[in-house]
Every structure is written in C-alpha cells, then in structure tokens.
Design a protein around this nucleic acid. Structure first.
Lengths: 260, 260
DNA sequence: AACATGGTTCCGTATGTTGGAACAAAATGG
DNA sequence: CCATTTTGTTCCAACATACGGAACCATGTT
C-alpha cells in the first residue's frame, strides 16, 4: 500500500517545532529528526507556503498562525466545549480547582477544554493532549460506558504509573462495575502521585459524548470528601448535557471573516 | 527549485476540511479540490496517521485534535496574548465592545486574540484570520510604524471595500502621517459598513510588537466620542506593553503533559 | 434484486522526491 | 578586521515513491 512519506515527515517537522521552546533553524531540525538538511529545507518551504510554518527574517522557523486558525476550528466543531465552558468556569470558581473536558478522538482520549483552578498547586492539563485509559478517571469511565470495541481500541498496555495504578484485569473489572453503579469514576493517584480526580460521563445520543472531570491535590480530599465531589461532578455533567442539547449553531454577532 | 506537491495537496485538504461546516467524505473532497479519489484517500490516510485528521466510523473525515494541540501551541509563543488577554477582558467589560489583538505573522496581519463585547450587534473577528492593510485601523498602524519593507510586503492591492475605503496614495499617505502624530488609527467604515474601529500600537524592542483594537458599531460613535476612544485604546496598549515586559515564562502549576 | 453512490485497494507507469555536494550567507573567534 | 566555521540554500543525477484510472467492496436507495 502506498504511503506519502513526505507528509509523514512534514508532520514530524510540525510536531518538532511545536515541541521546541524556541524558533529552530534548518540544521537543528535536521539533527533532531535525523533528516538531511536539504530535505528539511524543502519540507519547511512547503509548510511555509501552506501557512503552517512561519519563517523569521533570520531564517529560523516556528509554528505558523495558520495552525491557530485550523486548531481553533477544531473547537468550533465541539458543541460540548461550547456548551460546557461556562459550567467549567462556574465549578472551577466555586471550588478553586481545575475542571476539564475529555472525549474520545482519533482512537485516543483527548483533553478538549479546561478551566484551571486558582491554587498554587493545581492540575494543568494541556488541551489537545491525550490521557491513558486504565489509569485515569475519565479513562475508566470510557471503559465502563463505551462500546466495547471503542474501549478495546483505546486501551494500549497497562503501565503502572504509580503504586496505586490498577493493572490486574480482575481489579480493573471490579472497579468498572462500581463505576457503572455509581455513575462516577475516581483517579486516586493512579496516574500521578498527589493527583486526585473525579469524573462523570456526559451522555449523548448513542455513545458517551465526553466526560467532565475535576482534578485536585490529594491533600484536599479529607476537607471536601468523596460524597460531595461525586455530587458536584454529576451536577456539572448534567448541566453540560442539558446545555449541549440546547446549543444553537451560528451567531447573531456581526461577523466578518477573511481567512487566507 | 523543488517543491513537494504532496504536502501542498495535504494542506489543501486540511483547509478544505477546516472550511467545511460538516464532516466530509473522500468523494466530496475529491470533487471540491478536483483531485482523484485515490489520491485524496491516500492524502487523508497520511493525515490521519499523523493525527491532523480524524476519521469517523462511517468513513467521514474532519480536522483532528492534533491540530488543536498544534494550534494552541502557537498561542503559547505569543507573550502579547498571554499578557494582553486580561486587559482585553477588562476593557471589553467596561465598554461592552469587542477588543482584539493583531500582529504581523507570515507576511500578513493576523488576529491573535479577542474578547467579544456583549451587545446584540458586535464585531466577531475570527482568531487566526487575516485582515487587509489599507482598510483597517491596525493595518494603517502597521503602515505608519513598521519598517517600510514589512509594510510593502504586506500590502497587496487596495480594494475599495466600501465607499469610505482610501485607495489613493496621497489620501492614505496623509492619514498615515496623522496616525504617526496621534499614535492612534481609525477605521471609519472603510472595510465593513457599520464597523468602526480604533487601534493603538503595542511597541516592543525594535519593531511594533502588535496592535490592540476596539471595534464597535458606528451607531455608538456619537455616544462615546473619538477623544474618549483614543484615550482608552492608548491606555489599553500601554497596559499590555507593560505586562508583556513583565511576563514570566513557565508555570508553578503541577503539570503533566502527555502529547502524542 | 438491481442499481447508484461512495470508500478502498491495486498496480503499471513515470513523475517527482531524494540527499550529497557545492555554494552563499551569516556568525564566530582570534 | 579577517579567516574560519557554521548554517541556510540551491542544484541535479539517481532512484523509488507517488500517482490515478480501473476495479473491487460496502452501503444506501429504489
């Protein structure tokens, strides 16, 4: 079967630039990706031409604003983000902790939106990043409520991130059963030490549409209690679900768009 | 000079999906871009592999969450956005109108951030989109304060968008002189009828870093007055400039990133 | 059941990509 | 200031990957 190796390499260049903390030259990209300089130069020229990379006057390269337009366009197609953001803000404000939305996209669980808490120590998930299935609250929610084929496709290995990570099938299966009963999932430092997360499903027609989660330092747990957290996250999920159903497409604002 | 036509086509596919209001099939993309179906299918497979496109279970394609990560990463490199967003919120709240940031990127003027007003009739610029140079407040700011080579490169044609658009060199030159004197630029319905914009430069070391603008319906102008608007937008620009100088890199938040 | 439409795969062909070498420009250090 | 080093850019012969028409498969419609 044919592949288009140039596109694979171009995307490698994009993610390399994305992962670099500063602008990059041709030689440093070539070294980083182990590709000849002339190849990198040609790939960059194509990406600059397409608007996905910007070239500085000194011949350095960085991710281009065209990516911003494309990236934000992805959010435009996520009604759960549009509907849910205000709810995240409200609950983040009320409890001072981070709320975020996760959904299955491209065979992976991805963070779609977040509102961070105000605490000095707080969870700061990166929008667009993926999260493991077996070791997170939202991952286990998906295992509990998704089509089995979806769940199996997403699950790749059961790395023991911390001492609390569930890796045995029996233990994981038992917890998934509990999640189905409770309608809420917990991450009790199973992924990251010190990180406690509670999540609830946002149901849609057919499958699970997304999940909403609240993350807090484990040290705050005794103060708040699991009962209260469960009640709150279920409430947030319900409010988002109701808002999604009522979201209207389009805007009454006076709009003028002039994309490239 | 060599080109990589495959990358050009792949980017065409990305923007085609971006511009489509719903998911697309292979055949509709092929028709829209006038490319054979087998070619489109191969391009899509590469983009799916790279995470820039997601494929639905019914064989439809849409922009992928990988673009979201890349796109938001572009903003991470814009200290003016990080520093300026709170100022935009404050002024938008105070006046009830839309504030936005524009900067020169990739030989073009691009909207980097915005906070919309609350009015029923309000400007709603799209982040990432480009704006014309000769017919907007921020465009004329750049003509006034930028390196001439930058300004010339950005200027492509002088389309008369409305009856108010300045297309003659003498008139435009005179106004640019005034902008230099005042430190503020106006768009008096030169781009879109009914749209009034006032903008001020955000200076940085060397060139103009960005511009901050407030957009309002022309009908509100008599109520507010140009004097007040000029004072306010200069104040906003000054506050952003001060905040940019003081922006700190990095975060104290407990972070865990797990990008693809 | 037949037909239409769209997604996917195949494979012979040739077009386009590749990357080492050379060149040009910029940066560095004495 | 100048020689050297490093990096960005261009060239082009060689090669192999990409191309796209045709066929096949899957789904939807009549």
């Amino acid at each position: 079967m044919d592949a288009v190796a140039s596109i694979d390499k171009a995307i490698d260049v994009l993610f390399y630039l994305h992962g670099s903390s500063s602008d990059c030259g041709v030689t440093s990209i070539a070294r980083g990706l182990e590709i000849p300089k002339s190849s990198v130069h040609r790939l960059l020229a194509a990406l600059v031409r397409g608007g996905l990379v910007d070239r500085t006057q000194t011949g350095q390269y960085r991710p281009g604003v065209g990516l911003l337009a494309l990236g934000l366009g992805v959010l435009d197609r996520e009604p759960v983000v549009e509907a849910g953001h205000r709810v995240l803000e409200e609950f983040a404000q009320r409890w001072g902790e981070t709320l975020f939305l996760v959904a299955a996209r491209g065979g992976d669980l991805r963070v779609l939106d977040k509102v961070e808490g105000q605490g000095f120590l707080r969870a700061a998930p990166r929008i667009g990043s993926s999260v493991p299935v077996h070791a997170t609250a939202v991952g286990k929610l998906y295992l509990a409520f998704s089509d089995e084929s979806v769940a199996v496709a997403m699950e790749n290995g059961r790395e023991a991130f911390t001492r609390a990570t569930l890796t045995e099938s029996m233990a994981l299966h038992r917890e998934i059963q509990e999640i189905r009963d409770l309608g809420v999932a917990w991450n009790r430092e199973e992924w990251i030490s010190g990180l406690f997360v509670v999540a609830a499903p946002i149901h849609g027609p057919g499958q699970m549409r997304a999940a909403v989660a609240m993350a807090l330092p484990a040290s705050r747990l005794p103060e708040l209690g699991e009962e209260l957290l469960a009640t709150e996250i279920r409430l947030a999920a319900q409010q988002i679900s109701e808002r999604v159903s009522g979201v209207r497409r389009g805007s009454t604002a006076m709009e003028k768009h002039n994309d490239d």
